[in-house]
């Protein structure tokens, strides 16, 4: 039913993508492993969802080396922040309608 609502963002239909965005709204940045643990997903699963959000320019992926280990961190992008807020608003307006 959620997909018939007005203003609902298709990108956030997946619980994992919604989770990634929620985490990035309250944290300046988060690394791959912390995010993986929070969402309880596998490496491959998380990677495919972050890639999808990156291609939408919702998040920024930063790869660097700490010693010899690669470290991936994510930050939210302006476009993603706006999209997430709109998504929340759409959810709220639906709930308000439901109350009436």
């Amino acid at each position: 039913m959620i997909e018939h609502l007005e203003g609902i963002n298709k990108a956030f239909e997946s619980k994992i993508r919604l989770g990634i965005m929620s985490v990035l709204m309250v944290n300046e940045e988060i690394d791959f492993n912390s995010l993986k643990e929070l969402l309880r997903v596998t490496d491959g699963n998380l990677a495919s969802h972050t890639r999808a959000l990156e291609s939408l320019e919702y998040i920024v992926v930063k790869k660097q080396f700490v010693g010899k280990k690669p470290k991936t961190t994510f930050t939210r992008a302006e476009k993603g922040e706006k999209a997430f807020r709109e998504h929340l608003q759409a959810l709220e307006s639906f709930l308000n309608k439901m109350e009436k």
Binding site: L18, S22, M25, S34
Partner: peptide, 8 residues
């Protein structure tokens, strides 16, 4: 969303 924001 709330749980994720709080937990993280």
């Amino acid at each position: 969303i709330r749980v994720m924001m709080e937990k993280s």
